[in-house]
Amino acid sequence: MIPALGLLVGLAVGLFLHPTVPLALQPYLPIAVIAALDAVFGGVRAVLDGIFNDKVFVVSFLSNVVVAAFIVFLGDQLGVGSQLSTGVVVVLGIRIFSNVASIRRHLFRA
């Protein structure tokens, strides 16, 4: 409940403050957001599986974000930044989908 409220608070703050992303962070923010979403869905799935662990969630969240940003950074340095971020998005998207499928199975038994 508190994290869900936090999500809403963060959304509201972001919408009202009109923050601008620093130029250096611009390529990494979207990937980081998707990695974080993956962690969130993974967390929800873990809750439903009954194996949720707060510490695991926090660590996986942070590591997901950092690793995703790092991969994009590496890709940018190697000159394959756009392809690599596409790949990261695809992988994270697949994970999100499988997590959502698992959640769905739990919630609707279908």
């Binding site: 508190i2 994290p3 869900a4 409220l5 936090g6 999500l7 809403l8 608070v9 963060g10 959304l11 509201a12 703050v13 972001g14 923050p19 923010l29 980081a32 957001v33 974080a36 979403l37 969130v40 926090v58 969240f61 942070l62």
Partner: peptide, 8 residues
């Protein structure tokens, strides 16, 4: 983290 995610 959720706040950060929403903000991001």
């Amino acid at each position: 983290l959720a706040i950060l995610l929403g903000f991001a």
